[in-house]
Write a protein that binds this DNA or RNA. Structure first.
Length: 743
RNA sequence: GGGCGGGUAGCUCAGCUGGGAGAGCGCCACGCUUACACCGUGGAAGUCACAGGUUCAAGUCCUGUUCCGCCUACCA
């Protein structure tokens, strides 16, 4: 479906405005807004930048109109006193109780203004009395509304004092401040001045101090709309993830103020309101009227203000789908399933889309809102163009690769936290991409003669083949879960862990003999098939994180002529679990690791082929090891491996324990008894530390009585395993000690 | 002032519903073994900010203290 965005958006904006207007949700009114005297436009509360600024707190005495005495007020902006229309105190303030209702004389302009009581006033601050300037302060404006006070504008749109300022007319606001302070002082009204730091609001664009000012603006009566948007989140029609942001959302929505939507700027959607110059009739229409429907006059004047850009942004979920026309795209894709955005525009944009979506479409615009982390610079500061501390993503992509950068963002995106971008981390993932590339090369080299049609019976599959398939199923399940729950760091970590540390570190090494040894053709075929399928699935798992490299490899290696984008995402359910293979490989792998550990710790050259004996009292363990014999011999670099049932004396051997298996590495002639003694001692100490915790738990009757049964059983099993291991290590230590002592 | 988040290995950080302290980088030792030295194998390293409490059990829950960060605000 084709329609131009600009036209569609304009239509939608006008249509929504008209509907709101006719529902009584848009009004024009005099209201105090943040006015930028330089841009000569109102800006929204959210666009004001606050900065602490050093100023003064001037204490000024206003004399009573009748009799003696007076009341002291404090102000940071003495020039605004010209527009004061009251002095307010707290209703509970004993000091001023009898003054409420009386009048004071406003110095310099000699106007009588009343003393009123309003609980906005903080008794503890200053003198406890506040001057009220409705036209120059939002709070004062609100108080004026409550007490029917006159609103007196003393400045024009350029923040220059107007005729209401009497002798100060024509002065700029800051020039006027100096004049007023000088005159208050000479008139004896200034009772004190103290330095004071407070926040000054500035225009986000031109950095000019904003001037709260009363002016005629257009507003959306927002409370009814907010009510619906709040309900949508309360009832779960829309979920905010992470949920911690819901509180912030509610806080803001419950205290929302009417939305000032008019802007006095040059660019934007012009407000679709016309006034007939003949009869004064106001016309609100979604298409330009030719003549006044009241008097027929053709002299119509359109409102000059334009709409806040967020007004049209709020319509995005449906205006982009062709609304107000009833298009198929709109019916299909509204509401969308997910909005991904930054929390910094939760209010600007998300909440407003919610309100407008519910108002116009009678349905939430999206089911889930995922608020991602904000990327900060390495000092934790928010990146911004004005600060110049932005990390240029294009530069990062040039240096480390687009996929590496993208994977880094996923890996960093733990929920509820901001991230500090780190080049080291990106580099680490660049290495990961490289690893994948090399694994693909390995696969390509060994799959040249492979065809996916080749069938392999399950009987031909090796333990390694079965094992990697089972591990793949787990990885697929973890990645899927991470993505489903918007835990992208968990998802990316699961993929990373599987591909590097299981597929590359173990599986590729395990099958090398089958691939290019003199093994049977069946073993080779099975390894090839499993390799092909595992790499294929891995690429698909990784594709959401690293689209470019996976597509490239997919095309050259898997090559079914279609993009990896339209391939099926691996499903854990489709891959059979294989606990037996996982358990058996775990033992084989541990034995290999134990042998390597001895090699490393005893400083035996990696090139030296070793003789190893494995003893176990468990028949099952021995048969597993027999099945894994080839893997052990190859990956531990052995020249001989014997498996025996009885734990015979192993002279001149270094010892380790892998589950129910005693590992003896023969180091005849090269064994360093002192080193072996130290190594065993270290192992035993480690075991003892673990046994300590377990033993303490099992000795505690409360633990046995109150802990879950499964937990207790687990601890008991652990105690047994640790006990066995310790005994075996201690026996080895005693033997080595004897040999060492004997020379 | 209010709200929120955080203080876990040298660094950057994971640790969801309380039950074996983890990863990456860095560091140490050995190794260019025919995918990869952007690599491999092995190793060292933490009073989980502090103090209480709940619990058989606390990095994980509660209270307080402290330090850091972010957001927000109308004490003139």
């Amino acid at each position: 479906e084709r329609f131009t965005m600009d036209e569609g958006l304009s239509m939608a904006v006008r249509e929504v405005f008209v509907r709101l207007y006719h529902d009584g949700l848009i009004y024009q009114g005099d209201y105090i807004v943040n006015w930028c005297p330089r841009c000569r436009t109102a800006i929204s509360d959210l666009e004001v930048e606050y900065q602490p600024q050093q100023g003064n707190l001037w204490n000024v005495r206003y004399p009573m109109a009748e009799g003696d005495g007076g009341i002291v007020v404090a102000t940071t902006r003495p020039e605004t006193m010209l527009g004061d229309t009251a002095v307010a105190v707290h209703p509970d303030d004993e000091r001023y109780r009898e003054l409420v209702g009386k009048e004071v004389i406003l110095p310099l302009v000699h106007r009588r203004i009343p003393i009123i009581a309003d609980d906005y006033v903080t008794m503890e601050f200053g003198s406890g009395a506040v001057k009220i300037t409705p036209a120059s302060d939002p709070n004062d404006f609100a108080i004026a509304g409550r007490h029917n006070l006159p609103i007196l504008r003393i400045m024009d749109d350029n923040a220059v004092i107007n005729e209401n300022g009497g002798p100060y007319a024509g002065q700029d606001r800051y020039e006027c401040r100096r004049s007023v302070v000088r005159d208050l002082e000479s008139g004896g009204f200034l009772v004190g001045t103290e330095p004071y730091t407070h926040n000054i609001g500035r225009c986000y664009r031109c950095k000019t101090d904003i001037e709260p000012a009363v002016s005629r603006q257009w507003f959306v009566r927002i409370a009814p709309l907010a009510k619906e948007a709040i309900a949508a989140v309360v009832t779960g029609k829309t979920r905010i993830v992470p949920a911690s942001w819901e509180a912030t959302y509610f806080e803001w929505m419950n205290n929302i103020r009417d939305w000032c939507i008019s802007r006095q700027i040059w660019w934007g959607h012009r407000i679709p309101v016309w006034t007939c110059e003949g009869c004064g009739k106001v016309i609100v229409a979604s298409t330009d009227p030719d003549a006044c429907p009241g008097c027929g006059g053709a002299k119509l004047r359109q409102e000059e203000d334009v709409l806040d850009t967020w007004f049209s942004s709020a319509l995005w979920p449906f205006s982009t789908l062709g609304w107000p026309e009833d298009r198929e795209a709109l019916r299909t894709f509204y509401p969308t399933s997910l909005l991904v955005t930054g929390f910094d525009i939760l209010f600007f944009w998300v909440a407003r889309m919610m309100m407008m979506g519910l108002y116009v479409m009678k349905e939430v615009p999206f089911r889930d809102v995922y608020l991602h982390a904000l990327v900060r610079d390495e000092n934790g500061e928010k990146m911004s163009k004005s600060k110049g501390n932005s990390i240029d993503p294009l530069e990062m992509m040039d240096r480390f690769g687009t996929d590496a950068f993208r994977f880094t963002l996923a890996a960093f995106s733990a929920q509820g936290r901001d991230v500090r971008m780190s080049e080291e981390r990106i580099e680490g993932y660049k290495f990961f991409i490289n690893k994948i590339w090399n694994a693909a090369r390995f696969s390509q080299m060994n799959l040249a003669d492979y065809s996916p049609e080749i069938s392999v019976s399950s009987a031909e599959e090796s333990i390694a083949d079965r094992w990697i398939r089972a591990r793949l199923a787990r990885a697929a399940s973890e990645v899927t879960r991470g993505l489903d729950e918007y835990r992208f760091n968990d998802a990316s970590a699961a993929a990373y862990q599987f591909v590097w540390h299981e597929l590359c570190d173990w599986y590729l090494e395990l099958i090398k003999p089958a691939l290019y040894g003199e093994k049977k053709a069946t073993a080779r075929r099975s390894a090839q098939k499993t390799l092909f399928e595992t790499v294929s699935a891995s690429l698909r798992l990784l594709h959401p994180f690293i689209p470019f490299v996976t597509e490239e490899i997919w095309q050259s290696l898997i090559a079914d002529g279609r993009s990896i984008m339209v391939s099926e995402f691996p499903s854990a359910e489709a891959i059979p679990t294989d606990l037996a293979a996982e358990r058996e490989m775990a033992l084989v792998m541990e034995v290999i690791t134990r042998i390597r550990n001895i090699r490393g710790e005893m400083n035996v050259a990696p090139s030296l082929k070793l003789k190893v004996a494995l003893d176990s009292a468990e028949e099952g363990a021995l048969s597993t090891l027999e099945k894994g014999r080839g893997y052990i011999e190859n990956l531990a670099n052995l020249e001989a491996l014997s498996l025996t049932r009885e734990g015979a004396e192993r002279k001149g051997a270094a010892t380790a324990v892998a589950g129910p298996v005693r590992v003896s590495v023969f180091l005849a002639g090269v064994i360093d008894f002192a080193a072996e003694k130290a190594r065993l001692g270290k192992e035993i100490a480690k075991i003892e530390k673990e046994m300590g915790g377990v033993g303490k738990k099992l000795a505690n009757p409360d633990f046995l009585a109150k802990a879950a049964e499964a937990v207790v059983r687990k601890e008991q099993e652990k105690a047994r395993l640790f006990g066995d291991k310790k005994a075996a290590l201690e026996a080895a230590l005693a033997r080595v000690a004897a040999l060492a002592d004997g020379g």
